[in-house]
Design a protein around this nucleic acid. Sequence first.
DNA 1: CAATCAAGAGAATATTGTTCTGTTATTATG
DNA 2: CATAATAACAGAACAATATTCTCTTGATTG
Lengths: 161, 161
Amino acid sequence: MSMPRTIDEIDLQILHILQEKARIPNAEVSRQVGMAPSAVLERIRKLEEHGIIEGYEVRLNPVAFAQGLAAFLFIEVDPAGNGQLGERLSLVAGVQEVHQVAGPDGYLVKLRAADTGELGRILREEIQHFPGVRATRTQIVLNTVKETRRIDLDVQDEAEP
Amino acid sequence: MSMPRTIDEIDLQILHILQEKARIPNAEVSRQVGMAPSAVLERIRKLEEHGIIEGYEVRLNPVAFAQGLAAFLFIEVDPAGNGQLGERLSLVAGVQEVHQVAGPDGYLVKLRAADTGELGRILREEIQHFPGVRATRTQIVLNTVKETRRIDLDVQDEAEP
DNA sequence: CAATCAAGAGAATATTGTTCTGTTATTATG
DNA sequence: CATAATAACAGAACAATATTCTCTTGATTG
């Protein structure tokens, strides 16, 4: 039996194209990488099966949905930590990211709201009452220089998840 | 002259479908919202033209590209602020987000690296030498509970950008 | 009450997605 | 070694989709 092939140059080309514009037609990708559509399709399917491609997303303009304000919260937790806190935080309206972090211990939360009024309300009326929350530090985003999920496709090793 | 229509229920349905799975065929979207493909295509194009849809992205597994470690840096800046710092930070390998924040003033940076060794190297050999950097605080992500860019499509008002 | 325009249905056609088959190169395996 | 198994791909065939066009409708406006 032979191994299922690792990520090669052509895979990287395909992924690079998809990172630029994920809704591009398969036939167009084939043209750009110089292979038959069937071959490209097979590669993309394998990348999906192996969990290297996790999904495809549309990027929406937050301003158009009254979510123009971004903020990061650092939430310091009680020593007798509540295990459900992360889950509860992730359900709050506008919360896009919840990470458990070290140094110092706590949660880092990224959220979006319409304005500072709404942000304050969420903090005061929701998050600060969650059990396990000892203190919160809020950092409001004044200006976003970069915001992406792209991965540099040159420095890669491969490893199946 | 009549106005170019605001975001309505059908637009929200379409955007919701695309947020789930952006590479879904147009014809399938039409079926799900009960409209002709031509009509859905026109709507999607307008959403793109108006900047409500900003683009389509593939989501890759960071582990497959030796970017399994995530960290947030808070970078405190010199009072005599250097205007280029944000740009420089955004060019560092692995950096996915750079936000200028208030309270206290500085930059919040999200970056990915293979491991703590590489992270340390980036901090020591690159970021800490950038002019304008006074101090950095590093928070390493132990566990990510949620990480998305989706927007809740129910609480929306509409507003063209 | 036309004239104008946005919005969409439906048909026509260009293009693409997907499956299938055959070929080649590579790798196990007896 | 020989040969069986497998991965990877091209190319063709067909199914499905994307896209354009035309026509209709309903709303708005001068």
